[in-house]
């Protein structure tokens, strides 16, 4: 039996894709466990290996599904066709879109949002977060503030979610039953600071301003995001101070001097 044939038959028997019989593998009978029991071990090991990384990265998504629901979710997810070679991050990144596409199966409209939040937390945990201090603003030249742009540390994500996942997150954190999903557009900031990962809801205006800042807009345009809020000047100032104190800002880039 050729190596390729052996691996194809082994894969079919232990992953459930393709057709193969146990006899195809031509296994040697040994005392102790039957060959069927031995193949069953590998079948479980394959599933365990694939699910381990997901279970570490998405503990709350798993908890929200419940044991049987999560098991079914994993089976369905792994049954998806493979379009590019699987890696840990490809498996993790694929879960939120898969949950969106199959939302009706899981009985929770907010499950994909919860997974997206957990994915963002896993991503920022391994990104660079080397922020500068607020006092760097003091070094800005007079009149240059409006044209100045902020450069953010890589360990920042701004999520636009379709549901309010905070009540769900908190309930799971407290070990309580998941509340009824509440569909309500929300913005969530996820970031890493001093080796810890945080997430926080953002108001509409700050989310708008932050999205502009992350896209590289000058501060004048960033602050326009607060137009329409109560006391936009105060809110813009407070947001800017918070972005610095939370460790989001990696650099401030002044416009080139005209002189």
């Amino acid at each position: 039996m050729r190596l390729a044939e052996t691996q194809a038959a082994f894969f079919a028997l232990t992953f459930g894709e393709g057709a193969a019989q146990l006899e195809d593998l031509r296994l040697r009978e040994t005392s102790g466990a039957t060959v069927g029991r031995r193949i069953e071990h590998y079948r479980r090991a394959n599933f365990g290996k694939a699910s381990y990384g997901l279970s570490v990265a998405f503990p709350k998504t798993a908890a929200a599904c419940g044991g049987a629901g999560y098991l079914q979710l994993l089976k369905d997810y792994f049954a998806q066709p493979v379009r590019e070679r699987q890696t840990r991050w490809r498996l993790l990144r694929g879960l939120p879109p898969f949950l969106r596409q199959t939302a009706a199966r899981w009985g929770r409209a907010d499950l994909a949002d919860l997974a997206e939040l957990e994915l963002a937390r896993a991503q920022v945990a391994e990104d660079v977060a080397e922020p500068i201090e607020l006092r760097a603003v003091l070094a800005l030249g007079p009149g240059g503030l409006a044209a100045t742009r902020l450069r953010f540390v890589p360990a920042v994500r701004l999520l636009s979610l379709a549901s309010d996942v905070f009540a769900l997150w908190q309930a799971l954190e407290d070990g309580q039953a998941p509340p009824t999903p509440r569909l309500s557009p929300s913005a969530v900031l996820v970031w890493q600071h001093r080796l810890s990962v945080f997430h926080s809801p953002l108001g509409r205006h700050e989310a708008n301003a932050l999205a502009r800042a992350l896209a590289g807009a000058p501060l004048a345009q960033v602050f326009e995001g607060f137009v329409g809020s109560d006391d936009p000047g105060t809110r813009a100032h407070a947001a800017l101070v918070t972005w610095f104190s939370d460790g989001l800002i990696a650099a401030i880039e002044e416009p080139p001097s005209s002189s």
Binding site: L3, F11, F15, N46, K49, A50, E84, Q86
Partner: peptide, 14 residues
């Protein structure tokens, strides 16, 4: 530990 791009456990060789 892979087949057709799928990541698998450490599987035995003949």
């Amino acid at each position: 530990a892979s087949f057709g791009g799928r990541q698998l456990d450490l599987l035995p060789l003949p």
